[in-house]
């Protein structure tokens, strides 16, 4: 944990892990959020303290560094060569080395989904994967899905349905939703699919289950579901 919680830039409560400040002071928030979330213990194992120091140390190449590794990532259609400490996660490589700060760090432990990106078309938690393990992989982040001028249909639907409040979970939600619809299309069943061998639908119940890896502390869930259902084109299972 950082020794001293950084003063709140906009006068909000300094130890509230859900207090999000304006993007220009994101660094302050990040340091603080990483420290503060160590105190958020929800049940056993969930939201246990992320190791903020480790990220910083890996960042600085601290410890008895085991040398750097070369890795080529194909992010959002662009090929990038990096030399990285093997400790650097895919999430940190994108955020800290490539300035792709759309993907967010919520828990750093696979428990929230804020870091969700698409690797070879499949959604994964980029916080629980090492960048060096993705040599040659094709990665799509929120920045690669669309731009403000030419939004991906899922981005447009989130705007239309107000699928967020603070927006911190949103890049992960959108990448996850895109990956999820591809999984439904590929016929991959879920825990709530009544028939494992039947056709898969994007009913509200299915979306709730399939999106359970993305938490939203603002609880914008009903609007997120409305947005995803609109893009899915699925009319079964009642109105969202």
């Amino acid at each position: 944990m950082p020794d001293e919680p950084a003063p709140s830039p906009t006068g909000g409560p300094p130890d509230d892990p859900l207090f999000f400040c304006d993007p220009t002071t994101r660094r302050v928030f990040l340091t603080r959020a990483a420290g503060a979330s160590a105190a958020v213990t929800l049940g056993h194992g969930l939201f246990s303290g992320p190791d903020a120091q480790a990220a910083v140390q890996a960042e600085a190449g601290g410890g008895e560094a085991g040398g750097e590794e070369e890795v080529t990532l194909l992010i959002n259609g662009r090929q990038t060569k990096l030399r990285l400490d093997p400790r650097v996660t895919l999430l940190d490589a994108m955020r800290e080395h490539l300035q792709l700060t759309g993907s967010k760090k919520g828990c750093d432990h696979g428990q929230c989904g804020a870091c969700t990106v698409l690797v070879e078309g499949r959604r994964i938690n980029s916080c629980l994967s090492l960048a060096v393990m993705h040599d040659g992989d094709k990665i799509t982040t929120i920045e690669g899905l669309g731009t403000p001028a030419a939004m991906h249909p899922m981005q447009a639907a989130f705007v239309k349905h107000d699928g967020f409040q603070c927006g911190y979970c949103t890049p992960g939600q959108i990448c996850s939703a895109v990956g999820m619809l591809a999984e439904i299309k590929a016929g991959i069943p879920s825990h709530v699919s009544a028939d494992l061998l039947g056709e898969m639908s994007a009913s509200e119940e299915e979306i709730r289950e399939r999106m359970s890896g993305n938490l939203c502390r603002c609880a914008a869930y009903s609007n997120i579901i409305a947005a995803v259902r609109e893009v899915s084109g699925d009319k079964t299972g009642g109105e969202a």
Binding site: G179, S190, H191, S193, L196, L197, S212, G213, N214
Partner: peptide
Amino acid sequence: ADSRIRRDYAVLSRALLSGASAQLRN
């Protein structure tokens, strides 16, 4: 999601689908 597992070993499919999240299972 393997069709043979879904058909002949459904208990395994069901157990897997009840675990973690889609991102983690991927």
